[in-house]
Design a protein around this nucleic acid. Structure first.
Length: 560
RNA sequence: CGGGGCGUGGCGCAGCCUGGUAGCGCGCACCGUUCGGGUCGGUGAGGUCCCGAGUUCAAAUCUCGGCGCCCCGACCA
């Protein structure tokens, strides 16, 4: 129960000039957040209420699967990070204390929680165990952006599961999936769970929770029954028309034509009838020539995963002469290993000739050059999965969950004695979620031209009560009375009791986006009624003043 | 790390090219007005012009150096 006249809610008519993302603009305009520095934000009272509501929902669902809340520090000794090899991470803030001891600011808490478990857990009887906390994470991001979407400091719910074996981990992982699905459903946002890259976290399996929205930094490939981050997505390519096969490759003169577009136009074939050569340097292996269809792109993450080694594009001077000059690179006669993407079907293709100003046509993989194969291309919209077309959407990552295995328990000595008295490493999972990103996603997904439209579960207040008329008028007295009654009906009300004009009050209410707006004004009061507007869709109705609080409370329960 | 842009009252901006009294809108304070869509009128407060050095009689403006912030890309545990 809050009076707007008492609340620090600095709304603005105009967004910050440098804001791009919708959630950035609206959260600042609505008075929810203020910037402190690059990637550093304060949450103002109304914004913090939203954050807290998300946090509480997450807490309840974590508790429901038996996870135990604790709290670990942000400032940590460097030692455990050295043991796991993560001290070298560039994004980690590093500092030293007055004695010169190396310290770090936590980017995440695997090292510390695992150290605790190493000390405190001795027996298989102590397992399984799930621990979580809400704690600030510090990451020296190369480029913070979009308000609260990508920051250098943010609160994260991170949980960690500890099990005796992989089956136990699978069960813990499954429980977390249930908890995540429930908490995000309750928060009222759109989301999906997608397969993701395990990345540098290591481990065996990973999923991400993604919220689709325009400001998203990630791309997700979706088809019925299929959802994956584009980083790892796999699909069948759209078919391509190939020219008739030739008995042997044939040289064609293509002076100055160095791009797929140019060559396909000149030769009158589809871009997909070309093979694009993409030479890379593979750690510990040297140059490998990757070939994908001309209308496809190499996905470096999939390539790295396929090769099991770090990969970077070659520098021009590293390209072997046998592969040819840039723009005319080709596999025929190339004296380097060749990796052909699985998206390349049988048939004759156009490739660079490995000589200036010439291409070859009718080149058949296997016949005209040796190669290994692998799925290393980026999926494209229009590809198919089980015959159904794929679409690609932008989304923000709001949570990610990893099966870590023994990636941390082994270096940190987290082991237990099994029933036979034998020492075994604890098998771990880790599960992150960013409440601030849930908040930003909700703003992005439901805002309209008038402002934010919160899902009711995470709105800063259940409703905003607008009292029109002058201070001391009959309308305002009735609004005061209704304010009390709404509170008694169990609703958390923001009461706009300011001496401002109606336009300003309405505009501010819609900007802040509480799910309901109740207006006490002459127009409806003459008929003994008050107006109730549903924020999402702005549909308005009236209810009798008598019993209005109860009616509003009932209506509120039906909202998304 | 590469490219681009910006820094002038709380917010949004003009002034800078061509050096000479720091300006506009919103907001804020006060008076009146209005009271179902940012009402209208009046009065007023509020600024180290990001920082430092230089040029000059004189610098928001020109020069050099630094810092900060934003956007695009790279990167992103």
């Amino acid at each position: 129960m809050t009076r707007l006249s008492q609340l620090l809610l600095p709304t603005e008519k105009e967004p910050p000039s440098d804001a791009e993302a919708l959630s950035h603009k609206l959260m600042v305009r609505a008075g929810l957040i203020r910037q402190v520095g690059a990637g550093l934000w304060s949450w103002l009272p109304a914004g913090w209420r939203v954050h807290q509501k998300v946090t509480q929902i997450v807490r309840e669902e974590m508790d429901a699967i038996g996870a135990q809340e604790l709290l670990m520090p942000v400032l940590l000794p460097a030692e455990p990070w050295r043991k796991t090899g993560r001290y070298a991470i560039e994004e980690m803030f590093k500092l030293s204390d007055r004695k010169g001891a190396d310290m770090v600011l936590a980017m995440t808490h695997e090292e510390i929680v695992t150290s605790h478990v190493a000390q405190l857990v001795r027996s298989y009887r102590d397992l399984p165990l799930s621990l979580y906390h809400f704690q600030v994470k510090e990451r020296d991001e190369p480029r913070p952006r979009a308000g609260v979407l990508r920051t250098r400091e943010f609160i994260m719910k991170d949980s960690y599961s500890f099990d005796v074996d992989v089956d136990g981990l699978d069960a813990s992982y499954a429980r977390h999936i249930e908890a995540y699905d429930r908490m995000l459903d309750r928060c009222g946002i759109e989301f999906y769970r997608v397969k993701s890259d395990v990345g540098m976290m290591g481990g065996t399996d990973a999923d991400e929770y993604m919220a689709p929205c325009a400001a998203g930094e990630d791309e997700v490939a979706l088809a019925p029954g299929y959802a994956a981050n584009v980083e790892v997505a796999s699909a069948d390519p759209a078919p391509v028309d190939l020219p008739p096969a030739l008995d042997r490759p044939e040289t064609v003169s293509t002076p100055g034509l160095t791009t797929v577009t140019d060559v396909s136009r000149e030769l009158g074939v589809a871009p997909g009838a070309l093979l694009k050569a993409y030479p890379v340097t593979v750690e510990g292996r040297g140059v490998v020539l990757v070939l994908v269809r001309g209308d496809h792109r190499v996905n470096e993450i999939k390539l790295r995963n396929h090769l099991g080694a770090d990969v970077r594009p070659v520098r021009p001077e590293e390209i072997p002469a046998s592969v040819g000059p840039t723009g005319f690179l080709g596999p025929v006669g190339a004296e380097v290993p060749i990796l052909l993407d699985d998206g390349v079907g049988p048939g004759g293709y156009v490739t660079g000739a490995g000589r200036p100003d010439e291409h070859l046509r009718g080149v058949q993989p296997g016949r005209d050059f040796e190669c290994e194969r692998g799925d290393v291309r980026r999926v494209e919209a229009g590809d198919t999965v089980d015959g159904v077309e794929l679409r690609i959407e932008k989304a923000i990552e709001i949570g990610n969950i990893f099966k870590l295995g023994t990636r941390y328990s082994e270096p940190l000595g987290a082991s237990y004695l099994d029933a036979e008295g034998k020492s075994r490493p604890v098998v771990m999972g880790s599960y992150g979620l960013g409440p601030a990103r849930v908040v930003a996603a909700a703003v992005e997904q439901f805002a309209d031209e008038n402002g934010i439209s919160w899902p009711r579960a995470i709105a800063p207040y259940d409703l905003e009560l607008v009292g029109l008329g002058k201070a001391g008028s009959e309308e305002r007295e009735l609004a005061e009375k209704l304010y009390k009654e709404l509170g008694e009906a169990g609703l958390d009300v923001l009461y706009d009791d300011r001496d401002a004009g109606p336009g300003e009050k309405f505009a501010d209410a819609e900007l802040l986006g509480c799910p309901l707006r109740v207006t006490v004004g002459r127009r409806t009061l003459s008929g003994g009624e008050v107006e109730v507007q549903v924020r999402r869709g702005l549909e308005a109705r009236t209810v009798p003043l008598e019993g209005a609080a109860g009616a509003v409370a009932e209506l509120w329960k039906t909202l998304p």
